[in-house]
Amino acid sequence: MKQDVTLGSGIHRAILDWSNDLPGWQRDALRRIIENGTLCDADIEELTTACRASNGLAEENGPELRPLVAHIFRAEPIPPPR
């Protein structure tokens, strides 16, 4: 069962605070890494499109971005990628 952690002033709070000034696509990348432990090829493609779109370098709109938020941090460690 996934448990939320209290951020308080620990490392999770520091990461969340630090990420607030990052571009949206980087905040989404950080969320994906924290949720999944790694980025898959599809993540990298979507983040590349989002980065290009946010800088006016893509003809298509980027994916909907979901930034890192406090409730994403879990009490249990993320297993290593397989």
Rank of each mutant, 00 (worst) to 15 (best):
I33Q: 11
C51H: 08
I15K: 03
R32P: 05
I34L: 15
P79V: 12
R66P: 00
G10K: 10
D4K: 14
S9C: 07
N55M: 06
R52W: 05
H71A: 08
T6C: 05
P81G: 10
H12F: 14
L16R: 01
A75M: 13
R13G: 03
T6Q: 13
E76H: 15
R66G: 02
I11T: 15
Q26C: 11
P23S: 06
K2C: 04
W18V: 02
I34S: 12
V69M: 07
G37C: 09
L39N: 09
L65C: 05
G37I: 11
W18L: 11
P79C: 12
I44C: 07
I44Y: 02
P77S: 13
L57A: 10
E46P: 00
E60F: 04
C40W: 06
W25H: 13
G8F: 01
E60M: 05
H12G: 08
T49Y: 01
I33M: 12
E35I: 15
A42T: 12
N55W: 01
D17W: 01
L65Q: 13
D43W: 08
H12D: 14
T6H: 09
I78T: 15
M1S: 13
S19T: 02
S19A: 14
A75I: 11
P77R: 09
G56F: 03
D28A: 15
G10R: 07
D41C: 04
S54F: 00
H12A: 15
P67Y: 05
T48P: 00
R74F: 04
R32I: 09
C51V: 00
A42G: 05
G8I: 02
E76S: 10
D4E: 15
G62N: 06
L57G: 00
W18R: 11
F73S: 05
K2R: 15
L16P: 00
V5T: 13
R27D: 03
M1E: 03
S19W: 04
R32V: 08
I33S: 02
E46T: 04
L22V: 03
A70K: 11
E45S: 07
S9A: 15
P23I: 04
R31P: 02
E46G: 09
L68N: 01
A70M: 02
D43H: 13
D28H: 15
A42Y: 11
L39V: 08
F73A: 03
L39Q: 09
I33V: 15
L39M: 10
F73N: 02
S54I: 00
F73T: 05
A50H: 00
A53Q: 01
E59C: 04
C40Y: 08
F73G: 01
D21I: 09
G10L: 07
T49Q: 08
L16W: 01
R66W: 09
P80Y: 14
P63A: 05
M1R: 03
I34R: 05
Q26M: 13
L22M: 11
D21R: 12
L68W: 02
S19G: 07
F73D: 01
E76W: 06
P81D: 04
E64H: 06
R52D: 07
P67H: 08
L16Q: 00
N36G: 12
I34V: 15
R82S: 13
P63E: 07
R52G: 00
D28F: 05
L7A: 12
L65I: 07
P80A: 13
N55D: 01
A70F: 08
